[in-house]
């Protein structure tokens, strides 16, 4: 294949990765923005979303499209419920202390991961794509499902944006993010908002994972890379800035895809992790952050 089409293929693969990453990282960014805590278990909620998607589709045993649709609804709901329960049981009791929260969510990471290992097992299992449709380009055929992922991710992000800026619940979230004490004084149930935001953040991770399972199999260790990449994206985009997160996800996702194809994937990750460290040190508000930290 010539350089041009090859680059196009790499860019398309990168765009699919970027779309899933944007949805996943948005969840992490939302939690950090509103609650000011870092959720290290975010990758495990992603993994849980994928595993539940496999479980739902194989349990129903119906047409792949129906199964996928069911997974798209059931999986985020279950993951959201688990995350909400974890938030009530653990995070409220440590009063969202930033350091204690990191330690506690590391604990959740291991518990979820190992619980899945004990029940689901160490195998990687695929989910049938909802439809088989190939788009024939002049140089190569491309999976129509992958293009659907990009579209679905864009719709999801629009929905989140609409929810945050146009609804009453979104207003409560933004008020809590802006000033927790004042929000409480205006009778906004800050504790409930916290629980809800943590659940919604996990649900976004689960949604990203359901979208990815027909491309990448569900496996109990699959949460590791999305977690690191989400960290990278959220920090480069500016902690708590949703617009920055989406923008950074596109940049990081695309460049990760392209560098991995043309150079070494390990080198791509080394560069990305070091970039994050240096962004945090010299530009703590992130590259696209709106206000200095």
């Amino acid at each position: 294949m010539d350089f041009g089409p090859f680059f196009l293929l790499a860019a398309m693969e990168g765009a699919v990765g970027a779309a899933v990453l944007a949805v996943t990282a948005l969840g992490l960014s939302l939690v950090f923005g509103v609650m000011r805590v870092v959720n290290v278990a975010h990758g495990e909620f992603y993994m849980l979303g994928a595993v539940i998607a496999w479980w739902v589709t194989s349990l129903l045993g119906v047409h792949p499209a129906l199964g996928f649709l069911a997974a798209l609804i059931v999986s985020p709901l279950i993951v959201g419920a688990i995350a909400g329960a974890a938030e009530r049981l653990v995070l409220t009791r440590i009063h969202y202390d930033p350091e204690a929260t990191i330690v506690a969510t590391i604990g959740m990471l291991y518990i979820i991961q190992q619980a899945v290992l004990m029940t689901y097992g160490p195998d990687a299992r695929p989910v049938q794509p909802p439809f088989d449709f190939r788009i024939q380009l002049p140089w190569f055929g491309y999976s129509g499902y992958k293009l659907f992922v990009i579209l679905a991710a864009a719709l999801l992000m629009l929905a989140v944006w609409w929810g945050l800026t146009r609804t009453r619940v979104g207003l409560m979230m933004r008020a809590t993010q802006f000033d927790r004490e004042t929000a409480r004084a205006f009778a906004i149930p800050v504790d409930t908002v916290y629980g809800g935001v943590f659940a919604v953040g996990a649900m976004l991770a689960a949604l990203g994972a359901v979208l990815v399972t027909p491309i990448q199999q569900a496996h109990y260790l699959m949460g590791h890379d999305p977690l690191l990449l989400s960290f990278i994206v959220v920090i480069i985009g500016g902690l708590g800035s949703l617009r920055g997160t989406v923008l950074a996800a596109v940049i990081i996702g695309m460049s990760d895809g392209i560098i991995s194809v043309f150079f070494s994937p390990t080198l791509a990750k080394i560069i990305a992790t070091l970039a994050v460290a240096f962004v945090l040190v010299w530009r703590p508000q992130g590259l696209f952050g709106e206000r200095p930290a």
């Binding site: 990191i102 992790t273 070091l274 040190v281 010299w282």
Partner: peptide, 24 residues
């Protein structure tokens, strides 16, 4: 380098350095 940050940023910077070391 990492000590130019504090709190949560310090944790993430050290985490990222260690990850870069691991990948190296």
């Amino acid at each position: 380098i990492a000590l130019r940050t504090a709190g949560v940023s310090f944790m993430i910077v050290t985490l990222m350095f260690a990850q870069a070391g691991y990948l190296t």
